[in-house]
């Protein structure tokens, strides 16, 4: 059983809206403009900002859902989704209890974590070699 199974949900009551998402949207706009001009975007660490559950919902609603949705299984799940704004990604790292441990907005062509690292590719190559070995 993980903590997720406990039937307690944080309700996002309207009274707990803090109203801090506009500055975030402005920052995303700046980063996206930079991505187009210089090829370098950037990311925003949502957990470093004091956001209430209601704010998170408002942010998700403002960005919308886009075309890509990927799940990475490495030490727990990581959810990567492109928002309805192309080039703006939500990356949510979860532990194996399914709880979010890092929540990022990445403004880039594709989040780093989606790419295959050379070291992992080498491991893959080695694996494939052993499989091809005449046995």
């Amino acid at each position: 059983m993980s903590l997720r199974d406990i039937a307690v949900r944080v309700e996002a009551s309207p009274a707990s809206r803090i109203g801090g998402i506009r500055p975030i949207l402005h920052e995303i706009r700046t980063l996206l403009a930079a991505l187009i001009d210089t090829g370098r975007g950037g990311s925003i660490d949502l957990r470093s900002l004091p956001l209430s559950p209601a704010d998170f919902e408002a942010l998700d609603a403002a960005l919308g859902e886009g075309e890509v949705r990927a799940t990475i299984r490495a030490l727990g799940e990581t959810r990567v989704t492109e928002t309805a704004i192309h080039g703006v990604w939500r990356v949510t790292h979860c532990n194996d209890g399914g709880e979010a441990v890092a929540d990022l907005i990445e403004v880039c062509d594709a989040p780093e974590i989606l790419k295959t690292h050379a070291a992992d590719a080498r491991v893959g190559l080695a694996k494939l070699r052993t499989r091809l070995e005449p046995g």
Partner: peptide
């Protein structure tokens, strides 16, 4: 990490959470 089957993605994720905690810009994770 390799011995224990932790991929670079997994480790990158770990570093991303660490960076987030240390209030470092997310870009330093890599």
């Amino acid at each position: 990490l390799a011995k224990r089957g932790v991929s670079r993605r997994g480790f990158l994720k770990y570093c991303a959470t660490l960076a987030s905690l240390m209030a470092l810009p997310p870009s330093v994770a890599a």
